[in-house]
Amino acid sequence: MAQDHPLPSISPDVRRSWWTPARRDHFIGYLFILPQITGLVVFVLVPLALMAWYSLNEWNVLAGTFSFVGLGNYEKLATDPALPGVLWASACFSVGLVLFNLSLALLLAVLLNQKLAGTVVFRTIFFSPVVVSLVAWAIVWRFLLQQDGGINAVLRMLSIDGPNWLRGPNTAMVSVIVVQVVKNVGLNMVLFLAALQNVPQELYEAARVDGASRWTQFFRITVPLISPTVLLTSIITVAGSLQVFAQIAVLTEGGPGTSTTVLVYYLYQQAFQFHFFGYGASLAMLLLLIVGALTYLQWSLRKAWVYDND
């Protein structure tokens, strides 16, 4: 570096004392992150600050009234009788989605990683929903999940009387999770598949020599070695699960009752449908707090469960 661009010769002593190579490296570091950080400040921090300000006001968009209410919206939040149910639905949805998504992604990746002919075809099929329009996807599934829809028709052939999937509180939740997982599991599957292909074969051979069973190999070799990918996908999936909105809007509209009204959907209802924009903003702050805490937890626990050979 110094060879390419010799430092200016004027007062070299002064320069050296302040403009040290370390300082220069810091400067380069800042330059590298400048575009991204500028973007995050302008498009994330500033809007969030505005939302925080809105949460201290009562803003009726239609009437054009905007008045400072201090912590009024947060008091409302603390006493909102609907909120515990909403948080419970969010928790059920997120836990169910993350567990099902990650385990299905791993199962598919392991299946595709067997040396079988024709896995390219299956790989394409499992990935294909990712590129299908969300709206078309949700509409087809709504059709399939009806009382007399495709899924119950198949069950009837097996002499099972299928439930009315989208109308029962528990089955509606399960349906929304499954539809969402099938749509997006291809992304995590691809990441897992790449990680699996990266596990050195010698390790398995050594384990076989030692007489380890397939299960032992899987849990002692595969899982630790792909754990960095598990962390990455779980962070993405947890954050994504708390943002899911369109499928719920199309499939259940938060029902039956309020059983599938998750936090983002509730926020949307309050702010955009009921016109309580200030209250919606305080819910946004709550959502931010929850997602932030979860991600911080995952990130700080990573040392405990992610295998890292560095």
């Binding site: 991204q36 950080i37 995050l40 400040v41 302008v42 498009f43 994330v44 921090l45 500033v46 809007p47 969030l48 505005l50 939302m51 809105y54 962070i235 954050a239 708390l242 943002q243 909105f245 983002v264 926020l267 949307y268 702010a271 924009f277 946004a284 959502l287 931010l288 997602v291 932030g292 991600t295 911080y296 990130w299």
Partner: peptide
């Protein structure tokens, strides 16, 4: 800050962004 960005649902900031 990057991690914060990772967590923001677009519904949350759409109104301020629209104003900007």
């Amino acid at each position: 800050l990057v991690l914060t960005g990772l967590l923001i649902p677009s519904e949350v900031t759409i109104v301020p962004l629209f104003q900007m």
